[in-house]
Design a protein around this nucleic acid. Structure first.
Lengths: 147, 147
DNA sequence: TTCCTTGCAAACTTTTTGCAGCCTT
DNA sequence: AAGGCTGCAAAAAGTTTGCAAGGAA
């Protein structure tokens, strides 16, 4: 499996171990792509196959996986910090989210499309951009029809 | 004062009162533009002139002011929800933030510059965009020089 | 052995809620 | 009088931490 090898290497490089608990947590996130899980939700998923895991371990592990650049945080203002796999495709930046204010659905936008804007900002503000987070709020196709 | 009149009207329209506490909280935010205050910070500011105010009132009021579209939330992943005045200029959308990962400084970007991207997304995803939040992470001018 | 890791429980922090009293209309 | 609003205290909710035991190198 590609992902596990990559994560293992990233952990090893910083002196961390790829323990069964950490594997299980990574699996939970990878198996639910596009679902933006909270720590509690990850906990519930992982507990099915690893009943002895502790909630604190989940909290510690997601933080660790953010530190080694495997997960990113996503804040939907619902009281939980949520996590998803980082994009590690050709373009280094993460994707965007469309958030429907009617039904709460979240749509992933894979395109980046911010390059020209970033260049403009880098020039004007002399700010070296490393990453960005972009959320759009609005109404999804389904909800538009039902209004 | 322009701002207070606008807020008063927005509150009245929804049946809320513009009480002295709410005025004081609005003042605190308006007097610290560009500072992205947390509820605790607003509380500390307001307490100077209104020592009897309660922290719960601050929490309730900022939420109320978000509801009537006077404040917006800003999440910097530092454990607090922060607030700032909404933009109510000609373009309806809020500004962007540049966040320096070295010194933590936050720079406001007043330009929107997302129109063409929004149009592209609206067409491609049939998603009706109402607002957005965009944060850039990177290194500010000063910190670039000191590296 | 060494030191990272874990589960548990307790602690912590931010935010919310219940309630009695107050204020404004 | 009616109903929103407030301060206080307690509670809630998410997250972090201390610690002793466990486990891989």
């Amino acid at each position: 499996m590609e992902l596990k090898a990559v994560v293992n290497e990233k952990l090893k490089k910083k002196g961390y171990k790829f323990t069964p608990q950490r594997k299980a947590i990574l699996d939970a996130v990878a198996d639910h792509k596009g679902q933006h899980l909270s720590s509690e939700e990850i906990y519930d998923i992982v507990r099915v196959s690893s009943p002895d895991i502790g909630l604190a371990t989940v909290y510690r592990t997601v933080q660790l996986l953010v530190d080694v650049d495997v997960l990113t945080k996503l804040n939907l203002d619902d009281g939980f910090v949520r996590y998803e796999l980082c994009d590690h495709s050709e373009d280094q930046h993460n994707h965007h989210h469309l958030i429907c204010s009617e039904c709460g659905k979240i749509i992933e936008v894979r395109e980046d499309l911010l390059d020209s804007l970033e260049q403009e900002i880098e020039k004007k503000y002399a700010f070296l951009i490393k990453d960005h987070k972009l959320k759009f709020f609005g109404i999804c196709e389904t909800c538009q029809k039902n209004l």
